[in-house]
Design a protein around this nucleic acid. Structure first.
Lengths: 371, 371
DNA sequence: ATGAAAGCGCTAACAG
DNA sequence: CTGTTAGCGCTTTCAT
């Protein structure tokens, strides 16, 4: 690869002029800008991002952590994050934790070292572990809220409320609920939402327990649901709903004739099966885009301070020095200009919610007893 | 973040000793190694990958390009690549081209600047564009072969042969084939394989044209298939098969009663529908893993030369100098040691094939005319 | 076994 | 407007 030097030599200017001509075209004369550009093109020069990153303290890379890429929910989010990241000038590194909380933390730590910002989709780790792992890096949580971190979640309570309302309107009085993974934040939100909505609407909801957020999880839950006496069921996500329907069918129970089922997420497969799944639609692309925007906002918002990376480094070092009261002699670092007062964040990390919408398709109907 | 300097100061050694203690534990005394390690742990020191990357000429990052992350085929591959990459010590950057060839090339160029190696899944661009875009970077093609590039593909001909054999055994004499995107390499392979297998087995295959490799593509193809007079159909992939079945059903045609259909890929949704899809199973995880292994092999194979990145840079510069015959004065670069003779690759890039296996499920049966 | 110093490619002061 | 210089954090000669 050609370097600034090669271009400088060919254009007959200094390396700094090359750098300027390419990244701050307004700071050089028209004529030199053109000469530099031509030289650059001729040599097919591409600034080395690693070198730039080292110098500037920015990698222009975002990290994305997901629990399972094969889950279409996260595949869609990944796609959206990558797409939005690119238009915002960021490459994206992915990490798949395989639904494993301990791997998750390790992955976050690895990512943290080489990215400017983090998007953590449905992380399973504890609040404190998470906070520690991201280590002050601009971060956005998806489907999870943690004090001190920005987040973007969906209106889980609203989603289950709509589902329950729909079922109630059809005539269902007792509905089963299959929960997701035990540690799931949105699962907890949904359970809470279900309780109040159930009370309000006068429908009895019976929780059949925790199951993996997969097709297999739904299969596993099916028999419990069938035995619950409910005439309808709410699943943690669409994949579970699919598994549930499948197992029910094997047992000779027809959906929605014998049991109504409503999923959550509206991943694309929800419409690929028949009957198509009644489910709560989450704006997947908006979720992914929003996450990137929130990270970028933090990145740019911190721009009155130096570059974020260096900012953090300087602040951290200062903290240590303050604490230890050793190493009092200035060690030649010229970056002492940062002001401790701006350590106090005056705007809290943002928490946003996206609204969701029940979409009624083929898996819900009037209960047999009523019809 | 703490730096080598901080650690060195705390451990009372020089920065080079810190570097050694951490990356070449055998080169320092036991006692200092321990002191350094403790200091590092206390400061939570993590070597800055960017700085290391700049110095060493390796980013320990791989780039992965896919046409569509929402296609479960590529989601699975992505998952496998990420997983294997991690165990091999590489982070992975993803890029989704949205099935767009021009975006694809741009993405490859962007990736190329910041990774050590590339995995390109089912790229759509022309051979020469691809060759130019990867620019000598260790690369592995998935489901595509290009002279001069390593690749890992599946036995497409074998797959369609098995499918056709199965159908023939059931009694089908004329089967429709729906093709994938016009530029698809594996599509072309399958068509060729279909021709010879059709001739051999004595079944007439009628190509109904090119369709997108999606559910919608299958829907679009359905009517043509129905009108083709065929009693069975081979689709380009499972998503198409699903769309096809769905549209057929809407028209009152039942699968497999009225028409047998066999897909390709065996993505997980193939089993989530009913009837479950008869399809050609591709070992997705092995594909992803294999791709990473092939890249890593190239990376390590080139290790008798300096680091690959620097190697390329040096060689390229040398080439230019040789060509231009200018800039004759040594410019202070000490890295003139590389030998032009080793530019001649003596082992060709590897081409591998993974075998596939037809898995018969619910969408194929004896044709109505026979039964 | 350890330290001093050079330098990867780039950008950002700081002079002119 | 342009050139010179310093240095991001790290690894790696080259001395000792």
């Amino acid at each position: 690869m050609a370097t600034v030097r090669d271009v400088a030599a060919l254009a007959g200017v200094s390396i700094s002029t090359v750098s300027r001509a390419l990244s701050a075209p307004g700071m050089v004369s028209e004529s030199t800008r053109e000469r530099v550009e031509q030289a650059a093109k001729k040599l097919d020069y591409r600034p080395n991002p690693t070198a730039r990153g080292l110098r500037v303290g920015r990698t222009t890379t975002l990290g994305l952590l997901v629990p399972d890429l094969e889950n279409p929910f996260f595949a869609s989010i990944t796609k959206a994050v990558q797409s939005r990241g690119r238009t915002s000038g960021y490459a994206v590194l992915i990490a798949d934790s395989d639904e494993d909380a301990s791997q998750e933390l390790e992955l976050v730590s690895m990512l943290a070292a080489q990215v400017d910002g983090l998007v953590l989709a449905s992380p399973r780790s504890s609040d404190v572990s998470l906070l520690a792992a991201v280590d002050g890096l601009p971060t956005v949580l998806l489907n999870r809220e943690v004090d001190g971190l920005a987040s973007l979640a969906v209106d889980n309570a609203g989603g289950v409320r709509q589902s329950l309302g729909h079922l109630r309107a059809l005539g269902h009085r007792t509905v089963a609920a299959v929960s997701g993974p035990a540690g799931s934040w949105s699962g907890a939100e949904r359970r809470r939402g279900l309780e109040v909505a159930g009370a309000e609407l006068g429908v009895e909801v019976v929780d059949v327990g925790h199951f993996r957020p997969t097709f297999a999880g739904g299969v596993a839950a099916a028999d419990l649901v069938a035995a619950s006496g409910a005439t309808a069921v709410l699943t943690y996500n669409d994949l579970q709903a699919l598994g549930l329907v499948d197992r029910l069918r094997q047992r000779g129970l027809e959906v929605p004739r014998d049991l109504s089922v409503v999923g959550f997420d509206d991943v694309s497969v929800a419409t690929l099966v028949s009957p198509a799944l009644t489910t709560v639609q989450i704006p997947l692309a908006a979720l992914g885009r929003g996450a990137v925007d929130l990270v970028v906002e933090q990145l740019d918002g911190g721009d009155d301070a130096p570059a974020p990376g260096r900012r953090r480094a300087a602040a951290a070092r200062e903290d240590r020095e303050l604490l230890d009261l050793e190493d009092a002699a200035p060690d030649g670092g010229g970056d002492r200009d940062d002001d401790l007062s701006d350590l106090a964040e005056d705007h809290l990390p943002q928490r946003s919610r996206l609204s969701v919408e029940l979409v009624v398709r083929g898996t819900t109907s009037v209960p047999a007893a009523v019809a």
